[in-house]
Design a protein around this nucleic acid. Structure first.
Lengths: 218, 218, 218, 218
DNA sequence: AATGAATGAGTATTCATTCAT
DNA sequence: AATGAATGAATACTCATTCAT
């Protein structure tokens, strides 16, 4: 087939990225072939190379742009918010929402780290570290303010991020919990994990008021 | 040439599994070739097929056996322990230790789910669910006993497991934290996440005793 | 390296078909490797797949196109000819000539039926049946006209076709008998096999010149 | 599994031959693997080599023994019969019956000639020629006696044999025609093909029972 | 910017055969 | 006579990439 009239360069690149993202999400980078990708968007294999340099390049672009987007949105979500508690809540809420809304990009950025060439890998890891650093800074701020009780800030930050990131593996938008409810649940859990706790709430037997709406698992 | 002396059947299979595990961990299932695998253990490609049926079969065996091992060890770790709090602590400690000690198997079992054929996938997912169910049961028991305050037991369980599983992505045995310290940190965080909290510990300003040993990130 | 100058798409496919036909004829479909095929026409194995989908596909194309050709030529050979005797003679003469001229295609179409996938097999068998039906129709017409004495039209048709098809297994164009002589011999035998045994039923009542020169076997 | 008690050498060889015959008939020599063969008879691949030298050897044994059997049975069928007409009838009847009864051996012996190594090929071709020679001799005898009118004895013999051999490709023992009827039909056709076309030359002057029941094709 | 045809290295898997046990 | 494990070469097919047009 000859080229589709009206499809200009940037639009084609965008189509490649969209299809690439989906295929990498569904099959994985190694398992995705450029043949599939080309046929998905109705173009020949060779033509792809007018838009991307290599398969690795496509992966890197997708991951890097997503990471930049993540950083930008996180900054925006935190913009103007002060106080470690408030910033923690804002970051958790943003993180949950983003992981649900951009499920495929986020998943790809975790799972295909291994497929990145060393040079590209380093770039992405640095961006990831920048994101983690945002949370660590908030935790430190809260600790300094006497709000949080954290044994190891890095471990806590990694733990929190992992807990939230896990959501994308099981969250079902048509399921029991709305995005808002989910965010609330995880805000609560994160708070519990980092806040100072009164000694009597510990393993101690003292039973406490039952939560009214303790739901059952779907 | 005939067989290499001294190599017997079960030993060869074990060598294949060991090398397969390592290669899948390092490169991913798709990226690992049976050529590499064979050359790693010093045997011809064709000979692999005296021990495994297919590449997929090798993956499945590795993942399935690991999952069974995980379930068995979890049962053993919980054996004889009563009380939701105590059982929660035991499970978290076991989980952390296991994820550190069996890093490669665990990582593979998460990251290569996608590479499993539908039939195999279902088997593994069922085993995974059985594991998750152990934690959910403990959380329910704690809620029923008035110990825990959990909005959604499934979400909480998934969150906890994800938080702990994340450890394998960054834990360095030669690093700052010992396995024991790490377990203690995460036991604390998990407890905070599920225990009832006294209202005044919430977002509220009430400052609490600063932790003495607030460490800095490595 | 890029493509060899001067080799265009259709020409390459034609080269593949030609070489494929020859190799299948000489070695059989199973025994022919695409490696051989590619090297015969001076191209890499992978390039074959720009022209054919699979090895099976190549076989099917060759057999199907040959069968269509056979049907078309048979129709042309019978076109405008009336009378069962005349049509029988025309078909036999055509059949003999075609089996000699297109020896490889014909042989392949018989001997590789077994190698066709079920779906493809059915297509070819239907075409073959269409050809057989042409002869059966002629025999029936002749029987109805009182010219032929045939116990079972299907058996007779199969017998005749098998007798003629056998020619390709032993006919030698440089041998004793010319194509024309051969056709005459088999026309005679077929006539004898189906005609009513009363002399006047013959198409050419004039008995063929006695072979004083009864030849010896080559 | 250890060896089955009571299975002695010759019995095992016989099992190999039986399974080999069936597999070669069903899939072709090239497509049959010794792995399949071994598993069919419940023995390991390696053990086959206690009974056969090579795969090629198995093929050769099967074809050669069948050819010898064919020759022996043909001799027996002709034994004591005199007169070209009578001998022709006897050979045709035998040939038809044998091709129906030993369908797989016969088919294999035609279709796998190509798979025989040159040395083996020559042996089999010589045996085949010996068989053909029997028919040619009968035809010559009939011609000399003025019974047959044959332009070329070799061509006639090949034509007759091909016509009869074709039967195995379509004959269905549960079908319309019995083996006896089939033999009668082909005896008639062969006679028509070779007899002098004067009615009195017929072997049985009494016209064969009219086929009031000229059947239609199934 | 697009294409079709090419390439060479690579894929998992199968093969007939060998041989120590 | 049987087996399990080994081998090396072969199989059809796929891959990312190149490039003349």
């Amino acid at each position: 087939m000859a080229r589709t009239l009206g499809s200009s360069g940037p639009a084609t690149l965008e189509a490649i990225r969209r299809a690439g993202l989906r295929l990498i999400y569904e099959r994985g980078y190694e398992a995705m072939s450029l043949r599939q990708l080309a046929s998905e968007i109705g173009m020949s294999q060779g033509s792809l190379y007018n838009h991307i340099a290599t398969k690795q390049d496509l992966l890197f672009l997708l991951v890097r742009d997503h990471m930049q987007d993540l950083l930008d949105h996180a900054d925006r979500a935190l913009d103007g918010i002060t106080g470690a508690s408030e910033r923690l809540i804002a970051l958790v809420e943003f993180h949950v929402a983003y992981h649900i809304d951009r499920k495929r990009e986020v998943f790809m950025s975790y799972s295909e780290l291994r497929s990145l060439e060393p040079r590209n890998f380093e770039v992405i890891v640095a961006m990831r570290k920048a994101y983690e650093t945002k949370l660590i800074a908030i935790l430190r701020e809260g600790s300094a303010a006497g709000l949080f009780t954290i044994t190891d800030h890095q471990a806590a930050a990694y733990g929190i991020l992992a807990m939230l990131a896990g959501i994308l593996n099981w969250y079902n938008p048509k399921g029991r919990l709305s995005k808002k409810e989910l965010a609330a649940i995880f805000v609560e859990m994160v708070q519990g994990a980092v806040y100072d706790r009164s000694a009597e709430a510990r393993v101690s037997p003292a039973p406490l008021p039952v939560k009214a709406r303790a739901r059952t698992v779907a």
